[in-house]
């Protein structure tokens, strides 16, 4: 310890303190501050750039998945539309068919009914005519009868025989 104190030189201590503090102040202002700032700035810019790249990549992925999703949706929609259209057209056709069938049936039924009515009318007419003829015949017969009984009877028999109802 005594040796250490003996070795201690106040002059050197003074100069060391003076130069070191001067150096410290100078370097702090003109070297360390700009160096540390520059390093910080650089690190921040690297960090920012990395983050931006990451964001861009995420965004790209997002866009890609969005695209895929939209494409898928579009495809599904198209398919659905097609299916619907097909179903609609099938329905339409079936409906039309059914309607046509119904119509046809209706027309047919009406025609048959009309035919039947015509037939009935025709038969009625015929019956009327036959009745007229019958009356005529009866008239004639009656007139003949009035003349000759035998002949009258004969006549009636003949007439009835010939006027067969068709």
């Amino acid at each position: 310890m005594e040796k250490l104190i003996g070795e201690f030189s106040f002059g050197l201590f003074f100069w060391q303190l003076f130069i070191f503090v001067g150096l410290l102040i100078f370097l702090a202002k003109f070297a360390w501050k700009p160096i540390l700032n520059a390093v910080d700035e650089r690190e921040n810019s690297i960090k920012d750039a990395l983050k931006a790249a990451e964001d861009a990549r995420n965004e790209m992925a997002q866009l890609q998945s969005d695209n895929d999703r939209i494409l898928k949706e579009a495809r599904a929609e198209r398919e659905a539309l097609l299916k619907e259209a097909k179903a609609t057209s099938n329905n339409l056709i079936a409906e039309a068919k059914a309607q046509a069938q119904e119509q046809a049936e209706k027309i047919l039924a009406q025609a048959q009914e009309e035919i039947a009515a015509e037939k009935r009318n025709a038969i009625g007419d015929l019956k009327k005519q036959i009745a007229g003829i019958s009356i005529d015949i009866a008239e004639t017969l009656l007139q003949e009868e009035l003349k000759d009984q035998d002949k009258q009877l004969e006549m009636i028999a003949k007439r009835v025989e010939s006027a067969e109802i068709q």
Binding site: L23, F26, L27, F30, A31, P34, I35, A38, R42, S45
Partner: peptide, 18 residues
């Protein structure tokens, strides 16, 4: 030290943070 570190500090400004 002044020479070394001042030149280092200056090189950042001159050379775009490198």
């Amino acid at each position: 030290m002044i020479l070394l570190f001042q030149s280092l500090a200056r090189s950042y400004a001159k050379n775009g943070l490198i």
